[in-house]
């Protein structure tokens, strides 16, 4: 069964393209361009050098916000998961931040810190940090005390305990928040760009929106979805497979 998976997935993508093509042909409107037109736009935008800088700008914002959110979120989550009094105190803060809409954070960051790169990245990070913290708090709570006692008794040392005993137990939680984090962050980055940056995929989408150019909108969206899927399958999943190899 497993061996057929790539074939099935390929067929499924093809099916989707066919549906799209048929729908676009039936509607016959420039508001729903078919896959051929969209891919033509992608290639011409790539060819004339328009698209790559925008994708690069968006990608670098995604990467920076991703790492900031993962590091700060993990630090908060692990502290709260391992220290009961911190958890009791900050739990309501976390719930508050989890419930602030992304748009509100973005607007406030732009209002308070100006339409700057730092404000943009900050706004995206603040949106993701609470999610990472909640996931990693669960991870820290799930850490096996018996293994920590073992490490303590055999005097394994703080650094080695962290590296060999604590982190391996957190990997599944880190992996979950990394994957959901990537999916969430790039969508927020587009909004941040639409509202207050002069480049990036979100900025381009804003331009095409004003021109009512659906082909351009779909071309930029699809191109960036492909980039994100490439990171997911080419980077995150192989790393996850490596660190969980022992489970098989």
């Amino acid at each position: 069964m497993i061996r057929h998976r790539p074939a099935v997935q390929g067929l499924s993508v093809l099916g989707l393209l066919v549906c799209w093509y048929v729908a676009a042909t039936l509607v016959g409107s420039r508001l729903l361009p078919g896959p051929v037109a969209v891919f033509q736009t992608i290639f011409s935008e790539l060819g004339n050098g328009e698209m790559l800088p925008h994708i690069g700008a968006t990608l670098s914002r995604v990467v920076v916000s991703f790492f900031i959110a993962m590091i700060i979120g993990a630090a908060i989550g692990i502290s709260m998961g391992s220290k009961k009094h911190l958890d009791d105190f900050f739990d309501s803060w976390l719930i508050l931040f989890l419930n602030i809409p992304a748009l509100v954070t973005i607007i406030l960051c732009y209002v308070w810190f100006g339409l700057s790169e730092a404000a943009a990245v900050l706004a995206v990070s603040i949106n993701k940090i609470p999610n990472v913290a909640v996931t990693l708090r669960e991870g820290a709570r799930a850490i096996d005390r018996d293994l920590l006692d073992m490490a303590n008794c055999f005097k394994i040392g703080r650094g080695r305990t962290l590296r060999h005993i604590v982190l391996p137990q957190l990997y599944p939680f880190l992996a979950v928040s990394a994957r959901s984090g990537l999916a969430l962050i790039w969508k927020i980055v587009l909004v941040v760009e639409l509202l207050g940056r002069g480049n990036g995929v979100g900025f381009q989408l804003g331009i095409y929106f004003q021109l009512f150019d659906v082909t351009g909108i779909l071309a930029y969206s699809l191109a960036f979805i492909i980039v994100i899927q490439g990171i997911e399958h080419g980077l995150l999943q192989p790393i996850e497979r490596r660190v969980t190899a022992w489970q098989r």
Binding site: D146, D149, M150, C153, F154, G157, P168
Partner: peptide, 26 residues
Amino acid sequence: KTGFVFQSPRLLPWMTVAGNLRLVLG
């Protein structure tokens, strides 16, 4: 130096036998 054989083995499942032993040897 204390050696402890716990009621459950308390080995690290993500490490090999050698890895588990190396861990306590530093």
